[in-house]
Design a protein around this nucleic acid. Structure first.
Lengths: 249, 249
DNA sequence: GCAGTGCTTCCATTGAATGGAAATTCCGCT
DNA sequence: AGCGGAATTTCCATTCAATGGAAGCACTGC
């Protein structure tokens, strides 16, 4: 027993604390937090109290813990994701108004897509791509659109390790899917998540034609009108790209 | 020279790092970060590297540092601000479409208002209330709307310490402003920030009539139509409140 | 009133954090 | 290309902040 039995640094433990919240859950009891983060109760308690002093977490009655407003504030004021969001939101709203479909914006992180923003069609059922949610590249049209416009090297590495656990998609399939997407300029994926929906996505490119993000829609199969959708998305994506060019990334 | 010359704990220092970014700036050089956070260069370097290992910050070429995508993800997946945002966004979009004005959503944090979400009128000039931005309560209609529906005790404490640096608003004025707002059910503030705009805001109440948030619009003076605006806002606020009642706060 | 659960305080132990100094890399300038 | 200055990164002896078990306290349900 000593300074950190487990060999963690303090930084490691702070990360454990703020990463301990399961998806979409914003409140935990101290003891549950300790359990989930794998920290001794006493240590969790001490850390939480310290973090609370700075507002990185907020404490409720009876030992309830939630991520702090101040943390939210700091992150949402200075995160690079915000620059992207800021640039994209007006265009996304246009698309949403014109097409009345779920619109989303995603970036690549590792070999997964991270959804940065999403506008729901009013009244639509909760769709899978939650904000700050992740999906494997090959499951989402946004992922395919992004990967298809990444540099050759990145694509190579990706394909190298690619393996569809369901076995439905071979590496060769994936390679040709990316190639085709690059050629067409947009990705379309028939309802992988939900069998009755299609995903269409286009890349947001910087001046070097490198994909920064992907802009996509999810539409019910019967409302699928590719010829109307794709140009609208591409126009918007171009607008976002231009906007980003102006802002310092 | 020893363990922390300044008497900071590690937690303190991590906070310094992530709070060191000035408003809206997402990238800093390591040395600048060290300077701004008041940490010795070596220490800043060590911390940043550790944080980067967990993705709480991302490192660019040549020592550039930015807040990490993973941090953004964690916060935006589990922060209580998100529950609010999620509940409010559809209603905000409705308002924005119908009225075509800047719509914003704010909560109270300390004696300041924190803007949680904002939809810009398309083409409008950048307005002051940025997302994750703060304003003193008495400067913003959202602030007044919030404070007017907080419990008596909180209002008392607020008035206790209230002092308008500009001297334009006395404590007595503030008190009657709050009372009047509570009576009317909405707050209106003539262009404090920008002389040609008005702010109108209504509280989002929980079942105990305690204000959780405020929903507001900023409109150019000449487009001001109170009789149309207020009912629309109130309806939306009620909807948001109902939605929040369902979700576990 | 009692048992059980969970939060909080206390404190001796010790290795993780510290930061000056030196090595290295990067970058602008000639 | 080659040089000079400023930045980043590595190294490592010193030391106190972090650690977590144990005991105390508060709250809840039976």
């Amino acid at each position: 027993m000593a300074n950190s039995e487990s060999g963690d640094s303090v930084v490691d433990r702070i990360v454990r604390v703020i990463a301990a919240f399961p998806d979409g859950v914003s409140t935990l009891q101290l003891s549950e937090l300790a359990g989930r983060s794998g920290l001794p109760l006493t240590t969790a308690h001490r850390l939480v109290r310290q973090l609370a002093q700075h507002g990185l977490v907020d404490l409720g009655d009876g030992g309830s813990v939630r991520l702090g407003l101040r943390l939210w504030e700091l992150v949402n004021r200075n995160s690079p994701a915000l620059v992207l969001r800021q640039a994209a939101l007006p265009f996304m709203e246009d698309i949403q108004q014109v097409l009345n479909q779920n619109v989303n914006l995603a970036v690549l992180d590792g070999w997964e897509v991270l959804f940065v923003e999403r506008l729901s069609r009013r009244g639509s059922v909760a769709n899978r791509a939650q904000i700050a949610g992740r999906m494997p590249v090959h499951i989402s049209s946004a992922g395919v659109a992004l990967m298809a416009f990444k540099p050759k090297g990145v694509q190579g590495e990706y394909l190298e390790q690619f393996a569809d656990p369901s076995g439905r998609l071979s590496r060769r399939d994936m390679r040709s899917l990316l190639a085709e997407t690059n050629l067409q300029g947009y990705a379309q994926l028939a309802g992988v998540v939900d069998p009755d929906t299609w995903g269409i996505a286009v890349p947001v490119l910087d001046r070097k034609r490198n994909a920064l993000a992907a802009l996509g829609v999810v539409v019910p199969l019967q409302e699928m009108r590719l010829h109307a959708l794709v140009p609208a998305l591409q126009t918007a994506a171009r607008g976002i790209g231009r906007q980003l060019g102006n802002a310092a990334l």
